[in-house]
Amino acid sequence: MLTATCTRTHVYVTFANPFLACDKCLRLVNAWHNDDRCGCVGPFWNEPCGCEKAGVTSVCPSWGPVDGCQCMRIFGSVEHARPEPPQ
């Protein structure tokens, strides 16, 4: 995902796992700003929460890149937050 501003094009890396939460604010995130690729001086941050230098943790214990969330099939229920639909 690229976002153009007046001075540069910002580079965001989108996560494949839609169940990732920011380690600082615990909100679901879908990407991080790659400051190395666009030349920004500041640190990287998560999108859309904007927390700087924060890691991410999956809230889905069964998510995989091939089958997605398997909580219903494996555990019989879904005990985690649902990802927000893309806008």
Score class of each variant (00 low, 15 high):
G76P: 01
P43S: 15
C51T: 11
G55M: 02
R8T: 07
A16P: 12
F19K: 01
C60H: 02
C49E: 11
R27Q: 14
D67F: 05
E52R: 07
K24S: 09
V13Q: 05
I74T: 10
S62I: 00
C40M: 04
D35C: 14
N17F: 04
C40E: 03
A16F: 13
C25T: 07
P85Y: 11
R82L: 15
F19N: 03
P61V: 02
V11Y: 00
A81N: 10
T7D: 04
F15M: 10
C49W: 09
T14G: 12
W45Y: 09
H10C: 07
R27W: 13
V29Q: 08
F44Q: 01
V78S: 03
K53N: 13
T7E: 01
P18I: 02
T14L: 12
E84N: 12
C71W: 00
W63H: 06
G50D: 05
A81Y: 06
F44M: 01
P48Y: 09
K53W: 11
L2C: 05
A16Q: 15
V13T: 07
C6L: 08
T14E: 12
D35K: 03
V41I: 14
T3F: 15
F15S: 09
N34P: 00
W63M: 10
W45I: 00
P48H: 13
L20F: 04
D23K: 08
G42Y: 01
K53L: 07
Y12K: 10
D36T: 08
P48R: 10
C6H: 11
Q70V: 07
C38H: 03
V59M: 05
P18D: 00
L26K: 15
G76N: 06
H33D: 05
P61D: 11
P65M: 06
M1H: 11
N46K: 00
D36K: 11
V29I: 15
L20N: 00
E84C: 09
E84A: 15
D36G: 08
N46H: 01
C6R: 09
C71K: 00
V41G: 15
L2G: 09
P83I: 06
V66W: 04
C51P: 09
L2H: 06
D36E: 08
P43G: 13
K53V: 06
I74Y: 01
C51W: 04
V78I: 13
E52I: 10
R82S: 15
P43N: 11
C38N: 06
S62L: 08
P43M: 11
Y12Q: 09
A31M: 13
I74Q: 03
F44P: 03
S58R: 03
T7F: 06
H80A: 13
W63K: 08
T7L: 04
H10D: 05
R8C: 11
V66Y: 06
R73C: 10
S62C: 13
L28E: 05
C38S: 05
H10I: 10
P83W: 03
G55D: 07
F19G: 02
